[in-house]
Design a protein around this nucleic acid. Structure first.
Lengths: 337, 337
DNA sequence: TTGTTTAAGTGAAAGGCTTCAAATTAAATT
DNA sequence: AATTTAATTTGAAGCCTTTCACTTAAACAA
């Protein structure tokens, strides 16, 4: 049975026999305070179970200790894992995460930019964006905006990402070194810079090894199992089709494998497949998926740390950080582990 | 180039030629206001791009429009889907979600209860709890606490859930009707009331159909693929083992299937498996998993709605809501769709 | 003693909103 | 025209912190 209403700073001040300014100063660790006084104040706080009112602090400081995280789809394994990493880091520094599922709706995104302006959140982490870069940039005067996985030309925002191009190159090269000459790519949505990067890496590998490029086999789709199925259906419809496919993420890859198998092809015998992300499903699909592993939780953690560092004015922080990826070889390309 | 600082209620009042109380009244839609005045005020708001300061409102109203959602593990597909449903409903009513990944740590849970007391959040949704019910209950005087999926004896908290027992009964009955007489169950963690329910349903089905119960085949594990594998390893170690397994969730089921196959058993020929949840992986594992489908997003939505209704004082709300589950028959039990 | 310096602590204002009692204005009634 | 009644509007208080400019007390020097 605690008191029905929370103790305020005044209660603490009275109990400790000091003014509320003094209490505030111990709270914020600012100014000189007599050691004894400090002890007394802290004791009073404990006895009252005092917790400063976040609401009042927010009004005064214009800081909420809230960080918004925007993802296109929470239930997507990649994003939920990212979020998990962010949350872990955030709580370490006494921040909370406000979650937004944008569904790629520019308006929802915009609302959160407005929240930044309105001091409802201290900072923003984007994993994709659907508003013009210039517009988003305008809001960064109200608080830090950080990009994860995605990034922009000229590195306008601080970013944590991977080298998409290099990763795609690795994946494609793997297929080539296994002897494939006919390689297709089913990529993610066209709007995004990272899918373009992955395409670049793919094309670069083909060029490097003098493999002819078949435009027909290169498609943009949104990330999803169904989209992977559709892709391979379409491609198999011609009598000339690839012996290997690089998929923009694991879900696309799973779709490709499932549909290929259904059409009577043997994976990897008739069709080799590489994915991207290394989600759970990579080890559930048969054959197990060879794929690019991204350090997803780490991406989240680093992004959050970067944001918080920025918020706290730490100056020794780099604007862009590239984390390492790794090709995980399993069975979907015809090599046994 | 907007003004560098946000317009306040006073700016609006000046521009509309009224007092700030009047502006406030149109903002909150309270009290009688002359239609013309209202129009003028609204116009002024628009012209200034006015947005009320959440911080000030919070301080004044002791309402943050923030709802905390606690889950053991965000990256788990079940929870992230749940969250997605919640978010959708929350934004409809102008609420935001604050996310907490508890990792089953009672202390993290406790911190959020404290936040409720401190008016940092308006309400709380729990999907599991690790503090004593009595303790949690004490905090409900500070704001609504809602349970999803989980629930408590005597329905202490408003709850959205499914009939776990009935669902487990359905699943088990399905196995029995296919002719199985030797049925095991790998269940979720023992602490939870819902795993006990599922066990009850399982046992009831066995009883009803006069199937002998083999204690050895009934185990509690935490939800995970590895745990499923371990279970079936252990069970297969004896020379007398089940021909069918009911798994507490799809991940356990996938583990069971993978390990069984690896040990040379044919699924469903030698071992039939039913899962629980109907996650993505259910249609990726081979054979595709027969499982109980929970309306996960809906659980999230309804829970959020219940919470918000409570917050807004709507009185015609039921304390407990049971959503329907469905047995999805695929191939892991030996029936072709 | 008087004056100066340093340390410790305080009062008041500001931050932006909502609400209540009181005041003002308009409309209705006698 | 005077009085009631009803419809609008307003000023001020309060929500809880933080911070800045000051005051008080103590220590030291001249």
């Amino acid at each position: 049975m605690g008191p029905i209403t929370m103790a305020t700073i005044i209660d603490v001040a009275k109990r400790a026999g000091v003014s509320k300014s003094t209490v505030s100063r111990v709270l914020t660790n600012s100014g000189r305070i007599d050691a004894d006084t400090k002890k007394r104040v802290i004791k009073a706080m404990e006895e009252l179970g005092y917790q400063p009112s976040r609401a009042a602090q927010t009004l005064r400081n214009k800081k909420t200790k809230l960080i918004a995280v925007l993802v296109p789809r929470v239930s997507n394994h990649f994003f939920s894992t990212l979020i998990q990493g962010m949350e872990r880091e955030a709580v370490k520094h006494d921040y909370q995460i406000v979650l937004c599922n944008t569904g790629n709706d520019p308006k929802k995104e915009y609302n959160y930019l407005k929240m930044l302006e309105n001091h409802q959140i201290d900072g923003l982490i984007l994993t994709a964006f659907r508003n013009p870069v210039e517009l988003i940039q305008q809001f960064s005067s109200f608080g830090p905006i950080i990009l994860v996985e995605e990034y922009t030309k000229d590195d306008i925002f601080p970013t944590i990402t991977i080298d998409h191009q290099e990763a795609a190159y690795k994946a494609t090269e793997h297929l080539i070194k296994l002897g494939h000459q006919h390689i297709g790519m089913v990529n993610g949505p066209e709007e995004s810079i990272i899918t373009k990067d992955r395409e670049k890496g793919f094309l670069k590998a083909l060029e490097t090894y003098h493999i002819p490029i078949q435009e027909k086999w290169i498609c943009f789709e949104s990330f999803g199992i169904q989209q992977g199925r559709r892709y391979i259906q379409r491609v198999l419809n011609n009598d000339f089709y690839p012996t290997a496919v690089f998929a923009g993420n694991d879900e696309l890859a799973v779709g490709v494998i499932q549909e290929a198998k259904q059409q009577g092809l043997d994976v990897p015998q008739d069709l080799a497949v590489v994915g991207f992300d290394d989600q759970d499903i990579a080890t559930i699909i048969e054959p197990n998926l060879t794929t690019i592993k991204q350090p997803v939780e780490q991406l989240g953690e680093k992004a959050m740390l970067l944001l918080i560092d920025t918020l706290q004015g730490n100056k020794n922080i780099s604007k862009k950080k590239i984390l390492e990826t790794k090709l995980i070889i399993r069975e979907s390309c015809g090599m046994r582990v």
